[in-house]
Design a protein around this nucleic acid. Structure first.
Lengths: 318, 318
DNA sequence: TTGAAAGCGCTAACAG
DNA sequence: CTGTTAGCGCTTTCAA
């Protein structure tokens, strides 16, 4: 039945018979009980509201589909406990591998220990988008050059466009990605000689009112002349705030955004954007996973992809 | 172990013992081999590029998580054969239920027969966003009032805003949803006395060049004064075309969009939008599914949710 | 080449 | 209330 070396005509007969029996279907549960393979990859998204993950999933699925692996989908929504719950469920379901962009609590807590245990059990783990600073070399990962991306943005702002006072906008929780971008911002400012103040580094939370209040700072007299916003959501909030205050980008504030959604091109002022190769992140993570499942045995690999600064009209020349 | 009526102190002991054994984990494969329940729901998205599904999934997940059901995720990307493949895989994996927005080929082919077979096997199916016209009463479904939504939009355009020449923009394949919207458009135009021409009803394909060419018609002298665009992607393409031709919305063309993404509010001209209660679609579909899995035995239910016309600035008063 | 039998980890049924 | 046993549907092993 499984197309192993056997008599051919008889095989065909059997297959036809089976098909006639109103559709026989192999049971993967039974199968996997013996083979220890469920042909299933557990994927945890850290924020289902972020279109980033749609592209990511697209990239992953294209690879997995051809290998007949299926996706068991989970969402942490930046909740460490929910993430832990799903990881345990994945184990119960016997997923063959796990792909995760690990979240962390505001107190820095995370599921690193659990992931270590899972890895020890022999289940391959691929970190995507984010990794653990304290354990960079322990897990396979696919990320982008967050640090360099922001440094380049700062360079563009200062050297090419003449900005001297810069702001940075992030969002809770302060995961790996954001720490890197933060570092890139600080060191970039120092290196290229731009001024930055603590109050220009805004960290958004889930409190809309509070967010709005913080974002208003950017448009005050004492604010920076340009801001780097660290994701899609921030771009939206910034644009919303500008609209409400009747301020214009880039006349009142210049902006560099992360995540190149089509909309960034379509706004009144097309937004200069740091474009992450999201589809590639997905593809690479999936390919890496397939490699591990094929038994590739090497030390953990850390793939770092390059982002690209797409220059449009949201930065004013000073 | 499964918390059934038994001695309490001993139970605790056993649980602790197990925990000590470096983490015992129940095997769902083994479990489901006996119980015939995998605690898994197969979900097929028809287009992973559409943010609609992010919200939908969000709604579904909120319900399933609490009931400890997991999501096996699949993407048809409007390919009937891929859809069929995934449906078969779902069967192999023994999903407890299937949620699907069925696609169809340009020739009208679909997987209705297969879905009927699956249903006959006793696996509950919930159709969301789309259903089968030829089999409305056979399956549970959660959709919106597509027909009425477009009729209301036409009414607003004609009666409130004085438009007389209307266009409609759709996208392949012509699934249920779009047929309904088409019908609503035609009958709405007739009823409220607006002119429509065949060449103003544009069906986009995957060919970008060709799409652009067709969309240009809207901005010609002989074009309509207002257009209804049937999804997120169309809004983008229309805005892109307008920008390229240096045309303004609503001065050169009025627009009513489907799918209320935050961006619609943030564009230079905030877009008047037919807002679908996407999260609710997800929640309702999931709740319906849970009901079936709890053994609720009634005739198939067709839930129809109401969309809302959110009036902004993209329709010009004539 | 083919057939029979054991066993994967669990639950349900039954006897102690 | 507890312990034992059969069997879910498959793969693998071993004997015919």
């Amino acid at each position: 039945m499984n197309d192993k070396p056997g008599v051919k005509p008889e095989l065909k007969k059997k297959i036809k018979e089976k098909a006639e029996e109103l559709g026989y279907i192999v049971s993967f549960q039974a199968k996997s009980l013996r083979t220890k393979k469920t042909m299933t990859i557990g994927i945890i998204l850290s924020d289902i509201k972020n279109p980033f993950f749609l592209d990511f999933l697209d990239g992953v699925e294209r690879v997995l589909f051809h290998r007949k692996y299926k996706i068991l989908l989970a969402t942490s929504n930046e909740d460490v406990n929910k993430e832990k719950t799903y990881l345990k469920w994945f184990l119960e379901h016997g997923v063959d591998g796990i792909m995760i962009s690990p979240t962390c609590g505001n107190d820095g807590s995370n599921n690193l220990m659990l992931l270590r245990q899972i890895k020890k059990r022999g289940i391959p783990i691929v970190l995507y988008d984010r990794k653990f600073q304290e354990a960079e070399t322990e897990f396979d990962s696919v990320t982008i050059n967050n640090y360099q991306a922001v440094v380049s943005a700062v360079k563009y702002l200062v050297n090419d466009m003449g900005h001297k006072k810069l702001g940075l906008c992030l969002i809770e929780p302060m995961v790996y990605t954001l720490k890197e971008r933060y570092k890139g911002f600080i060191e970039g400012c120092k290196f290229f000689g731009a001024e930055y103040k603590d109050e220009w580094i805004v960290v958004l939370s889930k409190d809309e009112k509070e967010n709005m209040k913080r974002l208003k700072r950017y448009f005050e007299e004492s604010g920076p002349t340009a801001v780097i916003g660290s994701n899609h959501f921030i771009t939206q909030q910034l644009l919303k705030t500008a609209k409400k205050l009747d301020k214009k980008i880039p006349d009142d504030l210049s902006l560099i955004a992360f995540d190149d959604n089509i909309e960034n091109e379509l706004y009144e002022t097309p937004i200069t954007t740091i474009k992450q190769p999201v589809l590639l992140i997905g593809k690479n993570a999936a390919i890496m996973m397939m490699g591990r499942l094929d038994g590739e045995d090497m030390i953990p690999q850390n793939i770092v992809l390059n982002s690209e600064l797409i220059i449009r009209k949201s930065v004013k020349k000073l």
